[in-house]
Design a protein around this nucleic acid. Sequence first.
DNA 1: CTGAAAGCGCTAACAA
DNA 2: TTGTTAGCGCTTTCAG
Lengths: 363, 363
Amino acid sequence: MSLFGEDGAIKPPVTMKDVANRAGVSIATVSNVLSGEKPVRAKSREQVLAAVKALNYRINPAASYLRSGRSKIVAAVVPTLDNPFFPTILAAVEAGCQKDGYELIVASSANQPEVEEARIRALMHWKPAGFIVIPCSGELPARKQIEASKIPLVFADRAPDGEPGDFVEIDNVTAGASAARHLTQLGHRHITVCTPSLSVRNLRERIQGVAQVLAEFGTEPVVVETGLGGVPEALPGEAEAQIGRASAIVALMNTTTLQVLAALNRAGRSVPHDVSLIGFDDYSWMPVARPSITAIRQPVDLIGRLAWSQLLERINGASGAPVHRRLPVELVLRESTTSPSAERETPVLPTEGAAVLSLATRR
Amino acid sequence: MSLFGEDGAIKPPVTMKDVANRAGVSIATVSNVLSGEKPVRAKSREQVLAAVKALNYRINPAASYLRSGRSKIVAAVVPTLDNPFFPTILAAVEAGCQKDGYELIVASSANQPEVEEARIRALMHWKPAGFIVIPCSGELPARKQIEASKIPLVFADRAPDGEPGDFVEIDNVTAGASAARHLTQLGHRHITVCTPSLSVRNLRERIQGVAQVLAEFGTEPVVVETGLGGVPEALPGEAEAQIGRASAIVALMNTTTLQVLAALNRAGRSVPHDVSLIGFDDYSWMPVARPSITAIRQPVDLIGRLAWSQLLERINGASGAPVHRRLPVELVLRESTTSPSAERETPVLPTEGAAVLSLATRR
DNA sequence: CTGAAAGCGCTAACAA
DNA sequence: TTGTTAGCGCTTTCAG
C-alpha cells in the first residue's frame, strides 16, 4: 500500500478509473457498485469489489460531493470543548459517524453567538449531510439558512427559542423538580439555584422545576447567576454572598458545582453540615470527593447517540414531524445533601423565627 | 442572504462565475484575487472583492480541493473524547484552525490501534492539510502513509516509538521526577506508581522519572497497571492490594487518580493520613476536593496551541528538522500529600514491626 | 495582467 | 444491466 512505485516516484492516488480498468468494467459500473443505487450483475460486482480491494481503493469524497451535492460530513457546533459535557456528547456522535461512514467536523462557538453564526456559515460551504448543534444562546439566526438548504439539523442538550425541531434533551423541568423534591423531603424549604446563565432555555426550565416544587411550600428559589467562566477567585459580590447564605443549593451545570464548592470554601461553609448541595451532571470525581456529591445524572452518552440516530434518519430521508425527546435523569444520592437543622435554616431569613427540625432523617 | 429568490424557489448557491460576472472579470481573475497567488490589478481586485461581498460568496472548498489537491481541513485523531484531557487539547487546536481558516475533522481511535489505523486511512482521502495525532499506542503503522503523502503531521502528548518527528509533549521524565522529589522531600521512600497502561511511552517516561529519584534512596517504584477504563467497581485483585498497601502514590493520568481514590476508599485508607497522593493533570475539581489533590499540572492548552502553530508552519512549507518540544510542568501543592509517619510506612510491608512516629509533621 | 480552456474524480442522465 | 458522456466549481496552464 505504499504510495511509492518501484522506482520511488510518488504513485498518483488510485481513482475509480483504475478500478474500472482492473475490473474490466466502466467507471459507471464501479460507481453503481459502490453506491449501491443501481442494480449491478453479481459477476460485475464481484470483479469490482475485488479490484477495489486489490488496489485499496477509496472513493474521493470531495469529487463525490462536488458532483452529487451530498457529502458524508456531519458538522457539530458546540459551545466549547473545554467543558467535558460537550465532548462527551460528541464522543457518542463521533462513534455513530464512524459506524455509519461519516466524518465529523467539530466547531466551537466559544459561547459567542456571533462566532456560532460565523462557524455555521463556514460549515455550510461543505454542504454537510447534517448538523448537530448545541446552541450557546436562545438566538440562532443561522438556523434559517440551514433549514432553507434542507440540511437536516438536530439540536442536542439545548435548542434555540421557538420551535425546537428535532431535539434531544433531558426533561429539564422534571430534573429541576427532582432536585428540589429531594431537598424538600430532607426538610429544606429554601433553595438557592446557581446557574451559569439565564439566557439558555434549558437552564431556565430547571429553575422552573425547582420553583414548581417550592411553590407547594410557599417559597421561591433564590436564583444566582454565576457566569460561564471556570472557577474564578471570587464570584461577583452579590453571588458570593447569596451562596454564603444558602442552606441548600442546586447547581445547574458541572462548572457551576465547582464554582459553588469554591465559594462555599471561601465562605467557610461546610457541606453538608451547613449547606446541602446537588449538582447537575454526574462526574467521576463526584463519588470520590469528600463529601461525595449528590448529583442529577444526565444520560450524556444517550443524548449523543439519540441525536445521531435522529440525524441519520433525516439524512436518509425520514420526513415526519419534528421529534423532540426529553430524556429522564437520575438522582444520585450521595453525601452532600442532608437535613437542615433549625440553627442552619434560620440565618437564611433572619427575620423568621427558628424552627426545630428532627435530625432523624439525616443519613 | 436568504437562499430563496423572490418567488420562493431555492436559489442555486453563488459560484465563482457569478462573482466574475458581477465584477466584470473572468473567473480566473476571481480565483487569483481570492488565492492571492498571482498579481492582479488593484482595480480588478476591488471589483472582485466588492462582488464577493455583495453576493456573500464563499469559495466551494470541495471544488477547490478537487482541482488543487489541497484542502483546508485539519484532521485530528485522539484516543478518546471521553477523557477531558484530549478535548482540551483539541479546543486549542480548534481555536487555531478557526483563526487560520481551517476546518477540524475529529476522529477517535477508541484506544484501539486498529481503529486508529482505519480512521487515519479514511481521513487521508480528504487529503487534509495536516494531521494532529495523539496515538493510542507505540505503534502507528499509518504514519508511513501520512509521511509518504507529504502531509504534515504533528504529534501531541504522545508520539509512537521511534523518531518522534514534530512533537509537542511535556517533559515526562522531569515531571515524574518532580512528583517523586516532592514525596521524598516529605520523607517518603516507597512510591507506588499507578498507570493506566505501559504501552505508551510518555507514561513509561514518567515512571522513569520517579525511578531516577528513588534510585538516590536505594529504592524502586512499585508499578501498578490499572487499565484505561473509567472508575470500575474494583481493580484487578493485585492492583487493588498494591494500592491498599501503598504509603505514597503517583497516579499517571487523570482517570488513574480517580481509580486510585476509589480504591483507597474501598481499602479504608485515608488521604493524606494513611497515604499521600499526587495526580497527573490538574482539574478544577482537585482544589475543591477534600482533601484537595496535589497535582502535576500539564500546560494542556499550550500543548494544543503549539501543536497547531507547528502544524501550520509545516502546512505553509517550513522544511527544517523535526521540532520536538518538551514543555515543563508545574507541581501544584495541595493537601493530599504529607509526611509519612512510621505507623503508616510500616503496613506497606506487613512483616515489619510497627514503629511510632511523631505526628508533628502532619499538616 | 487577464481570459479561455482543460481538467481534478466522480455521479447521473441517457443510450445502447 | 452497462457504457458514454456531460458537467459539479474550481485552479492552473497557456495564450494574448
